[in-house]
Every structure is written in structure tokens, then in C-alpha cells.
Design a binder for these strands. Structure first.
Lengths: 211, 211
DNA sequence: CTCGGATGAGACATGAATGTCTCAAAGTGG
DNA sequence: CCACTTTGAGACATTCATGTCTCATCCGAG
């Protein structure tokens, strides 16, 4: 406590451990502390030194996830400009932390913590506002409520997080898959015989992986 | 054991208990057996008489979910006719059991059971085949892999299950929300200045609920 | 080299959930 | 009305994850 340099190094350690914890907890919420410690490459004793107990660890994982998602909303500047472009930016910013989001989606009602819940509500409200704005701009459909769009969007992010962890989806395909499906849907557009459809804004790989 | 009528009544009891268990477990996978028993309206002793233990109970809940989803695939006859129509039928058939699907999505990697995994693979393969067929029919987009479409579809079903349980989505809106978003996407089609957009296939309430 | 702090390994106690048991009460069919 | 079964309530032991502790080791700083 006397040497501030130590506390600085501790911070990075904590985040490293939390990231490792997510990898285990997002798949198996009931994982023992032994597994989490092993996944983080530390001993159970050190894990207990970093976090008072299991409850605190879970709480901080959730907090980290919410902070990351909030940061994604920030970097995507979702409150500015065209809603569609904002959403595309958000996907790109959020996909790297999809595992965190998967954890949040699985445990979001497990929290009794006010701080976590408040932070959660803020982010969901920002998402909600984005879709509402998009609807007002005439960008998003109005038959689907903004609340449902928020819900579904987060479900897809979380689903991608799980799929990546289980090896069912390549990380490089994640952002494209979410964006295209969420914005355009699964249905193919056959407006005209010639296909001037969505003008492939980036030459993404269109391979169909067969697991 | 001498009276077959008793065993018959047991079967219905088991399913009743399992349904109650889903309501608790899909939200809180770590719920105690006490809560599950209370939710089912029986005592913990009877719960133990119906299921040898917690593991067996979880297993049977998963099995029930898979059977229900398989039944939905059956009633929707997903292997026949137009893929889009088949998918719409599937949504209608699967939404009532969305809670089961939510449980499956949350615990699908928690199973070491071969029977469960085999059943799971079969259903996923049927989904995959549906999307593959739709792509060959020119109905579904080919930029998105059939595997991803299967994944995302199940994610949305599960998400709806959670949202309904938490009261964030009205059950009557569930099928419409999934179908429209998954097939059509969130983006509004502005083919012409005049808006002859999707001719509101049913006068659903388009209110934007504010939680 | 020596010291201070951090870490890992392990022992230990604790508490909670689970599994098993008995017994009294209630319901059902004869 | 009686016999049988099922159920609920509770006590009880057991298992296991958690939380706390000590001690030996390692590493960097001075």
C-alpha cells in the first residue's frame, strides 16, 4: 500500500485473471474456483487474495463485461450520425468482447448488486435509444419494437460469443455474420433478375464453413 | 408395481414437475432442489422419489427440451416445401417451448450424456439442413453460412424464452418478432419514396414498450 | 547477498446442498 | 371400514466447495 507501483501492477493482474475467468464462467457458470484459478494460471490462494470470494469475482466479471460493452458503445459513438452505420460500428467494437457479453446474457438476472444493475440498465438504454433513433430516421423497421431489437441484438452478440468459444464460428466471420443477419435478415432479396443487392461494402470471405 | 394405472399417472407427474423445473432452472441453473420442489408444488422427498438426484433431473429437463424441439420440427414438417414457409411454421411451433430452448442454450455444453448429445446433434442437423435447402432454393442468403443461420436462429428462440420469462416480451409478440427479424432483418426497405412496405400481415400492436 | 513481498502448495474448518432415512398424515380402492 | 400407497415434514449423515490459515519457495530491490 506504501508503494503505488505495486497497486498499478495489481490492476493488470486482476484484469488478466478476470479475462481468464470469463472463458470458464461463460461456458460453465458453476465452475469451481480451482478451475478458474488454473485457467488463470494462478493458485487458488492468489485468486482469493485478488478477490475476497466467489461472489466478488463473479461481480467483477460482470462489471468488466459491462465496462467493455460501454466502451464499445463509446468507441462506436452510437449516439451520432446514421443509425445503420452506428450499428455496424458497434458490432465491430463489441465482437471482440463477445465472450463477456455471453457471460452477461447468461447471468444478467443473477445479480442482486445495484451497481451492476444500474450499469446494465444504462447500456441497454443506450442500445434502446440507438434503435429508437434509427426508427425515427426511417432506417430501422417500426413493426419491431426498439426493445425487441435491443434484446435480439444482444442475444446475437452473446450467441456469437458462445459459438466462438466452442469453435463453431471463426472470429473473423463474427462481425460480418451478425451485421448482415441482423440488418438484412436471412431472406434473399430477389427484387430484380440482375442482383444489384447490398453492394458488398467489403470483400469479406463468403465461405460456408461446414463443421 | 402390480397396478399399471399408478405408473401411468406417474408419467404425467414427471412431466409436470419437469415443466416447473424449467421455469426455475432456465433462469437460475444453480437453483437448489428446494426451490425446484416448491415451484413444482411437491416436497423435496417426492422430488427425490421421481428423480434419483439433481443430475438426473437436469438430464431429464434437457431431454424434455430436446423432445419438444424435435416435436416442433416435426409439426412444422421442416423438411417439406418452401423453406421460408417451413421456417415460419417452425417458429410458431417452437415458440411455446422457448423456455425449454433457453435452458438448452444455456446448458448445452454442460452435458456429458451421450444420449442427450446425440439427440441435440440430430435436431441441429435438421435445422442446418433446412437452411441449406433454403439456400439451394434461392430463398436464404448464401453469404451467411447455414451453420451460422442455425446458430443465430436458436439464439433468438432462446433469447425470446428468457425475455418472456422476465416479462420483457409479450408471448403474443414472440413469434412475429422472431420471424420478422430473422427473415427480414432490422433494416427498413426503402425501395420507393412512397412506402408500400411490408403490408402488416396482422395488425399487431407496434407499441414500443418502455421498461 | 540479504531482505521484503508475493506466490504456490497444502492442511484445516465451515457451511451449505445433497442424498437417505423414518414416521405421521392423507388419499384411494377394495 | 380397512388395507395399501403416496406424500410431506423433518432429522440425519455425507459430500464438496468455499474460506482461512500456515509455511516453504521464489523473485526483485536495495
Amino acid at each position: 500500500m506504501s508503494h503505488p507501483s505495486y497497486t498499478c501492477r495489481m490492476a493488470t493482474d486482476r484484469d488478466t485473471v478476470l479475462e481468464a475467468a470469463v472463458g470458464v464462467l461463460s461456458r460453465r457458470p458453476t465452475a469451481h474456483l480451482d478451475e478458474i484459478a488454473r485457467a488463470a494460471g494462478i493458485s487458488r490462494a492468489t485468486l482469493h487474495r485478488l478477490f475476497p470470494g466467489r461472489e466478488a469475482l463473479i461481480r467483477e466479471v460482470g462489471l468488466l463485461g459491462l465496462q467493455r460493452f460501454a466502451a464499445a458503445l463509446d468507441t462506436a459513438v452510437v449516439e451520432d450520425g446514421d443509425a445503420e452505420a452506428a450499428l455496424r460500428r458497434l458490432v465491430d467494437a463489441a465482437v471482440p468482447d463477445a465472450a463477456l457479453c455471453a457471460f452477461l446474457a447468461g447471468e444478467n438476472q443473477l445479480y442482486d448488486d445495484d451497481h451492476v444493475n444500474a450499469l446494465w440498465d444504462v447500456q441497454i438504454d443506450r442500445l434502446h435509444a440507438l434503435f429508437l433513433r434509427g426508427q425515427q430516421q426511417g432506417v430501422f423497421r417500426i413493426e419491431l419494437s426498439a426493445a425487441w431489437l435491443s434484446e435480439a441484438f444482444f442475444d446475437l452478440i452473446a450467441g456469437v460469443g458462445w459459438a466462438i468459444q466452442d469453435g463453431r464460428l471463426a472470429p473473423r466471420d463474427a462481425a460480418f455474420s451478425i451485421t448482415e443477419l441482423f440488418l438484412g435478415g436471412a431472406l434473399r432479396r430477389h427484387a430484380a433478375p440482375n442482383p444489384p443487392q447490398s453492394t458488398a461494402r467489403s470483400a469479406r470471405t463468403t465461405e460456408t464453413d461446414t463443421p
